[in-house]
Amino acid sequence: MQISARATALRRAIERATGEPAAAHRTEAGLRISAPVPADCGPERWADILGALSAADRWGASGAAGLTQIWVEIQEDL
């Protein structure tokens, strides 16, 4: 899947901030990128993660079974 320069930069920023690989997939609205957050994530790393997330159109996090997953969505021309 080919993604825009904006999406590529956002994916890289998320991977740097979390230290984990990020996955991207198309949605009806554009593109969603998600990545797990390490369990030992401290305040400094969360600050980096929130900085990366703020570049997206929409973002959030979910948690289950002790795993936190962050996600962002950006509007992309399909």
Rank of each mutant, 00 (worst) to 15 (best):
M1Y: 08
Q2P: 10
Q2M: 11
Q2L: 09
I3N: 01
R6I: 02
R6E: 09
A7K: 03
A9F: 03
A9L: 00
A9C: 08
A9G: 05
R12E: 15
R12L: 08
R12F: 11
A13D: 01
I14R: 07
E15M: 02
R16L: 11
A17M: 11
E20M: 04
E20D: 10
A22T: 02
A23C: 08
A23K: 09
A29F: 09
A29S: 14
G30D: 07
G30Y: 01
I33D: 06
I33E: 06
I33H: 07
P36D: 12
P36F: 07
P36T: 07
V37R: 04
V37N: 03
P38D: 05
A39M: 13
A39E: 14
D40H: 07
D40L: 04
C41E: 02
G42Q: 11
E44C: 07
W46H: 00
A47L: 04
D48H: 02
L50V: 11
L50F: 04
G51H: 12
L53R: 00
L53G: 05
S54N: 15
S54K: 15
D57Q: 02
D57S: 07
R58H: 13
G60I: 03
S62M: 13
G63Q: 04
A64D: 12
A65C: 12
A65R: 06
L67D: 14
Q69R: 13
E73G: 03
I74K: 10
D77K: 14
